[in-house]
Simulated assay, not measured.
Amino acid sequence: MARWDGIDEFIAVGEEGSFTAAAKTLGLSVAHISRHVTALEQRLNTQLLTRTTRKVVLTKEGEIFLHQIKHLQHAMDDATQGLATHQTTPKGKIKLTAPVMYGETFIMPIVHNFMHDHPEVEVIATLSNEQEDLLEGGFDLAIRLGHLKDSSLKARRLSARRFIMCASPSYLRRFGEPHTLGELNNHQCLIGNSSYWRVHESEREKHIKIAGRLHCNSGWALVDGAKKGLGIVQLPDYYIGNEINSGELVPILTSYQPKQEGVWGIYPPRQFVTTNVRVLLDYLVAGLKE
């Protein structure tokens, strides 16, 4: 494979225009990138890059070589990933990340079923409410809730969530049920990470400011406060579905409920999805039935 040494590093530098950016993309050190690109130039006996203190520019020879060698890189990627698609049984390591509450409650039990059925799979799971960078963190799969921002990644819809405004019957008996958004100004609202709620009004989504005397960054704590009559809460349906079914909480202002949004499995942009990821996604879709 000596002929391939430095190729990935050179392509990254050529596309990013920077050794630093190339190092971040590949998850390697700047020194490693520089050393391998220099060795490649020496092996080819051709200067591929012009380096200055401020930027890196492809030489004419470098431009030609970059255009040609990228086809080989794509072919190598497709050949390598194509082998994985022919595995009949998932095996090896899969690294994934998901939001804490959703991951604990919904994702990991399905992952455990997947591992039980496929004993040759090793899972490294990171549950975090910070959106981890897939490429930088080396993740094979990430669970994202809501609207997707990074269009460079591949995504599969796993399920959906809805935000619902609700309150306990005791609160509504005591303070009355609001029928317009403006009436929320006369009510106690239980506030989570944001003092704005998403609503749908006049054919568009918007945010309204709410106020109240309880602020907490835990959805479960807000559910408990709502059940005990402390105020109105807006939460995703998976927090309050059981309470609504049991009558402990009552949906209100349903005509202003925002449209449902997706629960997604996202993964690095490859032509082929590895067997591990593909099969786990199938398990998640089946387990998170909308």
Rank of each mutant, 00 (worst) to 15 (best):
Leu181Asn: 00
Leu181Gln: 07
Gly182Asp: 12
Gly182Val: 05
Gly182Tyr: 01
Gly182Asn: 12
Gly182Ser: 11
Gly182Glu: 13
Gly182Pro: 01
Gly182Ala: 13
Glu183Lys: 05
Leu184Glu: 08
Leu184Ile: 01
Leu184Phe: 01
Leu184Lys: 01
Leu184Gln: 01
Leu184Trp: 05
Asn185Ile: 01
Asn185Glu: 13
Asn185Ser: 11
Asn185Val: 00
Asn186Val: 04
Asn186Thr: 05
His187Asp: 07
His187Phe: 10
His187Leu: 04
His187Val: 04
Gln188Pro: 06
Gln188Lys: 03
Gln188Asp: 09
Cys189Gly: 06
Cys189Val: 03
Cys189Ser: 02
Cys189Asp: 00
Cys189Met: 06
Cys189Phe: 03
Cys189Thr: 06
Leu190Cys: 07
Leu190Ala: 01
Leu190Asp: 08
Leu190Gln: 04
Ile191His: 03
Ile191Thr: 05
Gly192Tyr: 03
Gly192Ala: 06
Gly192Cys: 01
Gly192Trp: 06
Gly192Ile: 00
Asn193Arg: 13
Asn193Cys: 02
Asn193Gly: 07
Asn193His: 13
Asn193Lys: 10
Asn193Trp: 09
Ser194Thr: 14
Ser194Trp: 08
Ser194Pro: 00
Ser194Asp: 14
Ser194His: 10
Ser194Gly: 04
Ser195Asn: 15
Ser195Lys: 11
Ser195Cys: 02
Ser195Trp: 09
Ser195Leu: 09
Tyr196Arg: 14
Tyr196Gly: 01
Tyr196Lys: 14
Tyr196Trp: 04
Tyr196Phe: 12
Trp197Ser: 00
Trp197Gly: 03
Trp197Glu: 00
Trp197Asn: 01
Arg198Ser: 10
Arg198Pro: 04
Arg198Phe: 01
Arg198Leu: 12
Arg198Gln: 13
Arg198Val: 10
Val199Ile: 11
Val199Ala: 02
Val199Met: 06
His200Trp: 13
His200Gln: 09
His200Arg: 06
Glu201Phe: 08
Glu201Tyr: 08
Ser202Gln: 13
Ser202Phe: 02
Ser202Leu: 11
Ser202Trp: 07
Glu203Arg: 04
Glu203Thr: 05
Glu203Tyr: 09
Glu203Ala: 11
Glu203Lys: 05
Arg204Leu: 08
Arg204Ser: 07
Arg204Phe: 07
Arg204Ala: 06
Arg204Met: 11
Arg204Asn: 04
Glu205His: 15
Glu205Trp: 09
Glu205Ile: 14
Glu205Tyr: 12
Glu205Arg: 13
Lys206Ser: 10
His207Arg: 15
His207Asp: 08
His207Leu: 15
His207Pro: 06
His207Ile: 10
Ile208Ser: 03
Lys209Phe: 13
Lys209Pro: 09
Lys209Thr: 15
Lys209Gln: 13
Lys209Val: 14
Lys209Met: 14
Ile210Trp: 05
Ile210Thr: 13
Ile210Pro: 00
Ile210Arg: 04
Ile210Cys: 00
Ile210Ser: 12
Gly212Ile: 09
Gly212Leu: 07
Gly212Tyr: 02
Arg213Pro: 04
Arg213Trp: 09
Leu214Glu: 07
Leu214Thr: 09
Leu214Val: 14
Leu214Ala: 04
